[in-house]
Nucleic acid binder design. Structure first.
Lengths: 349, 349
DNA sequence: ATCTCGTTTGTTATCGATAACTCATAAATC
DNA sequence: GATTTATGAGTTATCGATAACAAACGAGAT
């Protein structure tokens, strides 16, 4: 029993000149068939302990690294998933991504990442490119438009599809995220409760981000319903950063004097806006009230506590990851994924 | 010539019950062989315009999405790359990731993303898992330790390997990033020029992040060389966030009274430190000078301009992406990738 | 001693594409 | 008109694994 290289082992092809170690190499070294190695390494099938030990030893000493691409092709099912978000560097998305990764990694799922830069055309191409990798699931931001054709393709290819960051939409794929209509309403109610009559919304990358657009419309609509008009200062091309907040706030001050409250697209832009307001001699919140969105400022500011609305990106990521796992297991996530909005009254309103 | 379905087309296997459209389906629809379709869709080989048109039409109407996994297996070369970073949500890494993606996406390279959470063991496993996907390249942070065995494996598998965020290391794989030794020196010089004698370094996740460790040592070493001692307030478990900056600064004030200057691990922690210092009645910079690292604060603060050292993450990402493309093309990047450090004197020193 | 059975291991056929040839056919050369 | 040369398109063999089924084997049952 000392020599286990059985002489009736099938004649496996000689190792290729490439230095890659394959299942066949391990099988030859352990004196078994490739199938046995495959079973042992994946923990399926019933293989005797001694054989297992021999195979593990052979795999270890050869430095075998399985080829999961080949495995996926053969098994017609991959442990790969894709995440497509508008912006990797945006704090809210990077937090969700990190959260998603932590849970999915535990389930041995690998993630492809792609960024659509808020461009529907890029989004469309990315979907196509990602589907070419035959992922088991696709997590997309609902904020970017995608054609019905792309949606159909995703469905036809049997990819578990979860939309994030858009809790309003219904009817489409499983979706998880905050309600932006609700967010706009919260901001409007707050400004109304403070008795403001002349307010503004400041945004960027207008028209590309459906979620921000919905927030804006909800905000303006609610203000109008309360009898107040909203100045909309937006720009199609400026990025959603502090500097754009500065620029657009300057533009607002020039165009609409006497504004009493500003609701910004996000915290970064609100921070920029505060710089401009303070530099221009406005007192906040006495002269102008300022409100942000996303809550990312709470980590970064020192004395200022921006009034803002936050969502728990980490929790959202975990919920989405769980939904994905459910979908992959063939179950459909029973309860809708809720993503609450938390209002933070700071010292800017 | 109206009917192009040639009757002597080879008998292709009947479409499987699965609804996936394969190259063979397109070939059958266009009345050609799979090889011809493959050539046309990849733009290789010489195929007549009419045949091409027919094939594109067939692919389009069938909604064909190529299986790049199968393609990679067959061609023994993939258009997949892997990025392994300590923290996806960390601003500096997410910016680099975004930058990398933008350039590599143009080259039709897809990215796997993985996060090691600063844990060498996780890093090791991630490397293994990522290599199982047979990427063409692997971009890793040099800040996390990985065993020589892992390095050897990466080399043996012929994966283009680029280390980021660590410009000090030499001898290993191609690496790109700022010099943390230099960063520590800059901070020390600044404090020395201001005439400070009692200074401190505040860090978190000590021992895990080799880069931060090198910064700390360089800083303390330079201060000592100038005749000043450095109090090291660090914690192994606290995350590198503003709140940890608050906590550790409180700890510092309790333990080492009379500190004149604090160099923080990053801007976020410095922001937290400023909160604590101001709340405790210290005047900054009159009583205590504060310095951060990474420059992420410059986007987020309002009146405070933190003295900090920044690097251009976007440029670093582009440089690394270009280096990867060079390596994949078989060339080795001629010039070393430099990543300058920019010193910003704000109003906290 | 024969037979059924359960445990272990091996065989065969794919998975969906691509590399490297080979084979027609029509144009070009002498 | 015969031979050479480009082209355009098809054949065959893999790539590295896995599914599904088949076979060998010793153990207990009859």
């Amino acid at each position: 029993m000392a020599e286990h290289i059985s002489e009736n082992a099938p004649p496996l092809p000689a190792s290729r000149s490439r230095e890659t170690v394959t299942l066949a190499d391990v099988a030859r070294a352990a004196g078994v068939s490739t199938m046995t190695v495959s079973k042992v390494l994946r923990g399926t099938g019933a293989i005797s302990p001694e054989t297992q030990k021999r195979i593990f030893a052979a795999a270890g000493s050869l430095g075998y690294v399985p080829n999961r691409l080949a495995g996926a092709l053969s098994a017609r099912k991959s442990m790969l998933g894709a995440v497509l978000i508008p912006s990797i560097a945006d704090a809210i998305y990077s937090e969700i991504l990190s959260s998603l990764h932590s849970l999915l990694d535990d389930a041995s799922l690998s993630l492809f990442i792609a960024e659509s830069r808020m461009d529907p055309q890029v989004e469309e191409r990315q979907i196509h490119d990602l589907l070419a990798l035959r992922p088991a699931f696709l997590i997309r931001s609902g904020g970017i438009a995608s054609t019905a054709q792309a949606q159909k393709l995703i469905r036809r290819m049997g990819v578990a599809h979860v939309q994030i960051w858009d809790g309003d939409d219904t009817g489409g794929p499983v979706s998880a995220g905050p309600s932006h209509i609700e967010a706009g309403k919260i901001a409007a109610s707050h400004f109304h409760d403070l008795g403001l009559r002349k307010v503004a919304y400041i945004g960027a990358e207008t028209g590309k981000d459906l979620c921000a657009g919905r927030r804006m419309e909800s905000f303006a609509g609610c203000m109008r319903a309360k009898g107040a008009e909203t100045a909309l200062i937006t720009d199609e091309h400026l990025p959603r950063q502090a500097e754009s907040g500065e620029i657009l706030t300057r533009r607002l001050l020039e165009t609409y004097p006497g504004i009493e409250g500003i609701f910004y697209l996000n915290d970064a832009m609100a921070i920029g806006g505060l710089r401009t307001l303070l530099a221009a001699g406005y007192r906040v919140p006495d002269d102008v009230k300022v409100m942000g969105f996303n809550g990312t400022s709470r980590e970064q500011t020192i004395r200022t506590r921006l009034t803002t609305i936050s969502t728990d990106g980490w929790k959202l990521g975990q919920d989405v990851a769980n939904a994905v796992l459910e979908l992959m297991a063939g179950r459909s996530p029973d309860q809708p994924i809720t993503c609450p909005l938390t209002f933070h009254r700071g010292n800017t309103t």
